[in-house]
């Protein structure tokens, strides 16, 4: 396995369909080892779908997703398990197992995938929880802690197997600005301390400016721009400009259009 290549993930001509509807239409991009790669885009542009494909929860219609040079879309189940031990994921709703304490949540992958002694696992678990600022909360159940803490615990669990890459699905969604900023700092810290590659899906501009090395902008299933954040800000693309300036869609409907859409008929002189 070629683990020293510059790119940890390479996506080639990725097409994803739900039934007949094309959600992602021929994506090509690379993620460099050790960088924070942000996938940015409006709601419904396919960024969560892209993430689900990158971690192998969905199979694409066509195209390749190379992880360390090997295509994960054609792997057998056993090979995929090996890849997944080196990948962590933070879910939008944190997806902690509700019946288990935080410590058990973090320890779970270690217990299942390694033959470490339980005392070692206990120490590892404490280290990971301390890393995200949750020392002393080992025995709490997910229902007993706040949303921000759940996300941190989710990150601790994702870090449990010391992965090479972590995927974050909307890390700051539903959090207040202070907690969200704390989480951004945490993402930054993980990246700088462990030289971890981070892939973040988000639409929060504030957090993008703080964490992103490379930004990949999606609109309607296509990439409209990739690069550093200031490069994108200078872009002439109308969608990118609109997104960065936070302008709503212009209301292009004339009165006639509106009537037509209500009645479902073509008005004379307005043939489209």
């Amino acid at each position: 396995m070629n683990d020293t290549s510059e790119h940890i993930i390479e996506v080639r001509d990725l097409v994803v369909k739900y039934g007949d509807r094309t959600v992602l239409d021929g994506l090509n991009f690379q993620i460099r080892r050790g960088e924070t790669f942000v996938i940015l885009g409006g709601s419904g542009c396919g960024k969560s779908t892209l993430l689900r494909n990158l971690v192998g929860l969905m199979r694409p219609y066509s195209g390749e997703i190379l992880f360390n040079g090997r295509d994960i879309t054609t792997m057998t189940d056993d090979e995929r398990i090996e890849v997944r031990k080196r990948v962590g994921m933070c879910f939008q709703g944190s997806a902690l197992f509700n019946s288990m304490s935080l410590a058990d949540n973090v320890a779970l992958p270690l217990r299942e995938h390694t033959r470490l002694a339980s005392s070692t696992i206990d120490i590892q678990t404490k280290i990971k929880l301390a890393l995200v600022g949750l020392s002393g909360f080992e025995e709490y159940l997910p229902a007993e802690i706040s949303g921000g803490m759940k996300k941190r615990a989710g990150l601790a669990r994702a870090m449990a197997m010391d992965p090479e890459i972590i995927f974050y699905d909307e890390p700051s969604a539903g959090l207040d600005p202070i907690v969200a900023a704390g989480l951004d700092m945490l993402i930054r810290k993980m990246q700088s301390t462990f030289n971890l590659t981070s892939v973040v899906v988000t639409h929060e501009m504030a957090s993008v400016r703080l964490i992103a090395d490379t930004v990949c902008m999606l609109n309607a299933g296509r990439i409209v721009g990739t690069g550093k954040i200031d490069e994108l800000e200078r872009s002439k693309d109308p969608f990118i400009q609109q997104f960065f300036e936070r302008r709503p869609d212009e209301e292009s409907d004339t009165r006639d259009d509106y009537i037509r859409s209500l009645m479902g008929i073509d008005l004379p002189g307005n043939a489209t």
Partner: peptide, 17 residues
């Protein structure tokens, strides 16, 4: 069903379980 809605099943799969 609840685990599926809360993405816990996905979480299991991503962890290789």
């Amino acid at each position: 069903g609840t685990m599926k809605v809360a993405e816990e099943i996905d979480a299991l799969e991503v962890m290789g379980l």
